[in-house]
């Protein structure tokens, strides 16, 4: 789901701001602690792998997940002055919240999952394979923050997302707009200053 916001943001941003401007701006892109994101992602995969292999590790994987998320949230917080990042922070936090209160996993609603491949639904139902997701039931806490929003035709991709995902993607979209679209007011102010001096 992260890609949707990026793709949409890039397309609209480049169309609005023009390719030349967008590409130069893209080259000079700076995010505080930006290098940590791929590292955190990598860490998550490692944890997944270890989770599968050793049961001893699985016992404290929950804490580990929380630590990774908190680190991610902290880096986002560092960037909070950049437009869009508060949205990303809010979205990630909502996802983190619902996973935290449900044992580190994302609840998926059965109604929404109907749009997905039946095979995947089957896996969710039986809980045969360990994944980041689980099927929600009446015991699930904060179900309205879980993966309950089905995306399917006419939307080009079929998936189930949470409201946190949407908020996060709005943030990504806004951030890309900020990067790729020249700010008219700022430009005008600069022009006026240049004209006066």
């Amino acid at each position: 789901m992260v890609y949707d916001g990026i793709v949409l943001g890039l397309t609209v941003g480049l169309l609005r701001g023009g390719f030349r401007y967008g590409l130069t701006r893209f080259g000079s892109l700076r995010i505080r602690g930006g290098l940590w994101f791929p590292l955190l992602l990598l860490l998550q995969f490692v944890v997944f792998e270890l989770n599968d292999r050793s049961s001893a590790f699985a016992s404290f994987s929950g804490i580990f997940f929380a630590a990774v998320y908190v680190a991610g949230l902290y880096i986002l917080w560092l960037n909070r002055r950049t437009p869009g990042f508060l949205f990303i922070l809010g979205g990630v936090f909502l996802n983190f919240l619902v996973m935290a209160v449900n044992g580190g996993k994302m609840p998926v609603s059965l109604e929404a999952a109907k749009v997905l491949d039946p095979y995947y639904v089957h896996i969710l139902q039986t809980g045969a394979v360990v994944t980041k997701h689980f099927l929600m039931d009446s015991a699930t806490r904060l179900p309205f923050l879980g993966d309950i929003i089905p995306l399917s035709r006419p939307y080009p991709r079929t998936q189930v997302i949470s409201v946190g995902d949407i908020v996060m993607n709005v943030g990504i979209f806004l951030y890309l707009q900020h990067i790729l679209v020249p700010d008219r007011k700022r430009i005008r102010a600069q022009e006026m200053e240049a004209g006066q001096s």
Binding site: S109, E111, A112, M136, P143, F144, G146, I148, I149, P150, V163, I166
Partner: peptide
Amino acid sequence: HYTTPTWVWVYALSG
């Protein structure tokens, strides 16, 4: 007491 599909509607409309 909303079910999850109702919540989807709430999100969509308030969005």
